[in-house]
């Protein structure tokens, strides 16, 4: 694949940059330039939060050429909190742990490598929201109600 193809979409791929419709305020991802809600131009870049939940998912056991390295892998439809649905791989999670409605967050990972010599394609994937351990306030910390 020519490197220009991935390069062109780097804002979307690397950091989930979508668009906002100036007309009706709809947040769009992927960017599509014409708002599907009100058919007016929507070309203002808008960074999506990357938070969402699993709408549906599947495990790919028979990967297409170029994705053998990661198979079996999970692909999903993610409902972003801003509204759009996005197709992406899930990462850092086993198939038995995933469920519809699982809260996920965007991370930037390797989408595929073109052999040993090609350009490496980075892009968004989603993983279960990182669990944060509950930390007790340190003794000197101000006590809050």
């Amino acid at each position: 694949m020519h490197p220009a193809r991935a390069w062109r979409g780097r804002s979307q791929r690397y950091r989930l940059e979508g668009e906002i419709c100036e007309g009706c305020g709809a947040r769009l991802f992927p960017p599509r330039d014409i708002c599907p809600e009100c058919q007016r131009p929507a070309r203002t870049p808008y960074p999506l939060s990357g938070r969402g939940e699993v709408y549906s998912y599947t495990v790919v056991y028979e990967p297409p050429a170029g994705y053998e390295e990661q198979a079996p892998y999970i692909v999903a439809l993610i409902r972003l909190e801003e509204g759009p649905l996005v197709s992406a791989m899930l990462t850092d999670v086993g198939p038995e742990e995933v469920y519809i409605g699982m809260p996920v967050e965007m991370v930037t990972r390797v989408l595929h490598r073109q052999g040993e010599h090609g350009v490496i394609a980075y892009g968004y994937k989603f993983r279960p929201v990182l669990r944060r351990t509950v930390m007790l306030p340190s003794p000197s910390a101000p006590v809050t109600a």
Binding site: T58, P64, V75, A88, M89, I100, G123
Partner: peptide
């Protein structure tokens, strides 16, 4: 499928149908 936003994520045709079927 959409090469830039589906296939690049390792989406296969079977996978897309599987997403529909599970939902």
């Amino acid at each position: 499928a959409d090469a830039e936003y589906e296939a690049v994520h390792g989406m296969t045709f079977t996978a897309l149908n599987a997403l529909l079927m599970r939902r």
